[in-house]
């Protein structure tokens, strides 16, 4: 009995420092955020309860609507493309290049992952620039007029998507590659004996076996994409106009430019609900199919 109590005491002691941090900086802030979302609060004066006002304002806020639409577009563009590219490259390297060269290519594709979004955004801003940026120079060779990638409201968001895809493929490729390596070799051997070609093997064996991993990659991709901020902040600052404003940028501006903490918290709660819904959806859609 005494032994038991001692062990429990040790247990609590070991988790205590971590628990304090988690409670103070994750758990309590969630409830604070929820509470502030029903208040008007500028940090200087105490928060004032305003009921559902902030949420009603969100529905009428054009800036927020643009941010939501942009973020949705961003998700719809980046997630499928980065998932497919990562899967195809991973499968190709796994099938055809299980050697030093393949290893080298994988390591090279991972380099954009380790660079910060701010660094990547900085470099791509110059590459996409109008006064002699590389991309426009290359297009010029093919006789295509220079495009003001980041300065035109029709292309600003697309440009950010391209950079995001460029940055993410290497990451998901690593995950897919590990997944493909875990597929039993005997399945492929049996398929080859039966005369299945490379495509058939990919669609009949690799793809079904990778379903759990694909679900992870897609969910993660969607959740990350909803949180996009750094790239758009660094490359366009949300402009021109509202053309590349994202949800997190709307939260940032509300809280730290306009000091409307209550409104910003309401927006943050919207983001939280979106993320939780995606997680729940993942469990529902993919959880059931597997079980």
């Amino acid at each position: 009995m005494k032994q038991r109590r001692l062990e429990a005491m040790h247990g609590y002691t070991y988790i205590l420092p971590s628990l304090i941090l988690i409670v103070c900086f994750s758990i309590i802030p969630i409830f604070m955020s929820a509470f502030f979302s029903f208040t008007e609060y500028n940090v200087m004066n105490p928060p004032k309860l305003v009921g559902m006002d902030n949420y009603e304002k969100i529905l009428q806020d054009e800036y927020v609507r643009e941010a939501l639409i942009n973020t949705l577009k961003y998700v719809v563009i980046t997630v499928p493309i980065q998932t497919i590219l990562a899967l195809v490259f991973a499968a190709f390297i796994a099938v055809k290049m299980q050697n030093k060269a393949g290893e080298f290519l994988r390591s090279v594709m991972f380099i954009p992952v380790i660079a910060s979004a701010v660094t990547s955004g900085t470099i791509w801003r110059t590459i996409l620039g109008t006064d002699g940026g590389i991309v426009n120079n290359i297009l010029g060779v093919f006789g295509i007029d220079a495009i003001n990638w980041l300065g035109d409201s029709r292309t600003s968001l697309i440009s950010i998507c391209i950079v995001a895809i460029w940055k993410n493929v290497g990451y998901f490729l690593v995950i897919f590659y590990a997944g493909i390596m875990d597929v039993p070799k005997s399945l492929y051997e049996a398929a080859r004996v039966d005369g299945a070609n490379m495509f058939q093997q990919f669609f009949r064996i690799t793809l079904p076996m990778l379903k759990p991993i694909t679900s992870l990659v897609v969910t993660l991709g969607i959740i990350w994409s909803f949180q996009v901020f750094d790239l758009s902040y660094q490359m366009t600052g949300g402009g021109p106009g509202y053309s590349s404003v994202t949800i997190v940028m709307a939260i940032y501006n509300a809280a730290f430019k306009n000091y409307k903490m209550g409104y910003a918290c309401a927006l943050a709660m919207v983001l939280l609900v979106i993320v939780l819904l995606i997680n729940a959806l993942k469990q529902h859609v993919f959880g059931e199919k597997e079980g």
Partner: peptide, 18 residues
């Protein structure tokens, strides 16, 4: 807590720190 995006807790944490 792993499911909670950092941007959601950021504002209260900012206020606490302030």
């Amino acid at each position: 807590t792993m499911m909670i995006p950092g941007q959601v807790t950021m504002i209260p944490v900012f206020i606490i720190m302030k």
